[in-house]
Amino acid sequence: MSNTVADLMRRNLLDVFNEPDPERRAAAIAETYAEDVVWHEPDRIVRGRDALAHRAAELREQTPDWVFYPDGPVSVNDDLGHLDFRYGPSGQPPVVSGMDIAHCKNGVIVELYTLVTEVPQPS
């Protein structure tokens, strides 16, 4: 399967981090990331597909009713991709906004940076 940078950015958000089924998520991880992928989160660095899969499962367990959704189109510059996202309880205003920036090579993500900001909630 040949993935474009835009495809990889959408798969990262929707097919990996939004996927509740562990087997489908594992298949998406195998097709989306390099074996030695490095993911930079605000509070940690995750190295390798297995660690990324474990961390994705943790996020699903911590907020099982929350969903990610794109907040605009994917931006691409050569082998870099950028996608803004929103995250929060399904059917409710988002709690978090953020962005993913990925370096892609040979049809997979080799390095991913995630930045997040809490969305102010109405009082």
Rank of each mutant, 00 (worst) to 15 (best):
M1S: 15
M1K: 11
N3W: 03
A6I: 02
D7C: 14
M9N: 04
R11W: 00
R11L: 00
L14E: 03
L14G: 08
F17S: 09
E23Y: 07
R24N: 06
A26F: 01
A26S: 12
A27E: 14
A28N: 04
A28K: 11
I29L: 08
E31T: 13
E31L: 12
Y33C: 10
D36E: 09
D36T: 14
V37T: 09
P42C: 08
R44L: 02
I45N: 11
I45S: 09
I45L: 05
V46T: 13
V46P: 08
R47P: 07
R47S: 13
R47K: 15
G48P: 11
G48Y: 13
R49Y: 03
D50A: 15
L52G: 11
A53S: 10
H54S: 14
H54R: 14
R55E: 04
E61I: 00
E61F: 04
T63E: 01
W66E: 01
V67D: 11
V67F: 12
V67A: 10
F68N: 01
P70N: 06
P70I: 05
D71T: 08
V74A: 09
S75T: 10
S75A: 11
D78M: 06
D79Q: 14
D79T: 14
L80C: 06
H82L: 11
H82C: 04
D84N: 08
D84E: 04
F85M: 04
R86L: 05
R86F: 00
P89H: 05
Q92G: 07
P94G: 05
P94F: 03
P94Q: 06
V95E: 13
V96W: 10
S97F: 00
S97K: 13
G98M: 02
M99T: 07
D100A: 13
D100E: 08
A102Y: 09
H103P: 02
C104N: 03
C104I: 04
K105Y: 05
N106W: 02
I109N: 11
L112M: 15
L112R: 14
L112E: 12
L115F: 10
L115T: 09
T117K: 13
V119D: 05
S123E: 01
